[in-house]
Amino acid sequence: MSTHDHYHPPGLQHQFEDMKQQEESVSIGMWMFLVQEIMFFGGMFTVYLVFRSRYPMAFAAGSNHLDAFWGGLNTLVLIVSSLTMALTVYYAQKGNRNMQVILIILTMFFGSVFLGVKAIEYTDKYNHGLIPFSNWNKKTPAEGEKKTEHSGIVLPFETKAEAAEGKNEAHPYHNPTGTFQWDDKEGEKIITEAQQKGYLTNAEKIGYFTNGELDKEKIRGKVQIFYWIYFVMTGLHGLHMIIGLGIMAWLLWKAWLGTYSAEYYSPVEMSGLYWHFVDIVWIFLFPLLYLLGRHFLAGGH
């Protein structure tokens, strides 16, 4: 059964007997890698679960300041990129080089759009003092013209400007050291309402109040935890997207050279698995981060 004697298919590595064995090995290996990825993100989701079950109202309040429009748009962008990726595999199986190249470029384009939107969102958070890390926000000196604004809550189908007009809390403020800012009337309203309805968890009863009064400092800490988790989760996801773009670039080069055929296309398929996995993570991140407290606001309107 020596491989040296007979026809040697393209891409068959020395340790395998035939393509079938190689494909199967590579596929199992990739899936094992994805399991590893699930556990990697799983640790982060555990963190999310623990803190959300503790401070649900702070999470809802924090979530309302994320831009659900951009988040939803990004979800759609990723889904489109998943479609183009799936079609890339389809055409790779057909050995159609041109369609592969086009679709890989499209996938990369949508991937980049996703990252671009992410950058817009991060910048917005930076400008509004919502980055939870110590002094990583835009620094606005106490003196002078340079003032920044709190972002008002943006409801769906509402532009930022409308939101800022409609609510009074979009006011200029000073942030000389770039600390985390949180001064949100809506959020406090949500918490008060929940308190009246008896929804607060034990941790919240202690975590938001001092002597029975709402304590802004304390709430800020809890919201900060939400943003911390938001940035780490989306950051890790973004990192995976960047790695995915790198893989796509490599794949584009290989596809350009016409490497893949009906006989040998497993690199395309494996890269596709990775890309879809990253997409799936976002499918969960979107509702879990962006859509937590929307109904509290929508109900009030």
């Binding site: 596929s27 199992i28 994805l34 399991v35 699930i38 556990m39 799983g42 595999v89 398929e269 596709g272």
Partner: peptide, 29 residues
């Protein structure tokens, strides 16, 4: 996505098991 884009529907039992095991283990955590 898993069944159709990732082709798990047509994969061996081992792949099914792998995909499920990942989520099961996360659930354990």
């Amino acid at each position: 996505v898993v069944l159709y884009f990732m082709h798990v529907r047509w994969q061996s039992k081992l792949i099914w098991l792998t995909a499920l095991a990942g989520f099961f283990w996360m659930a354990i955590m």
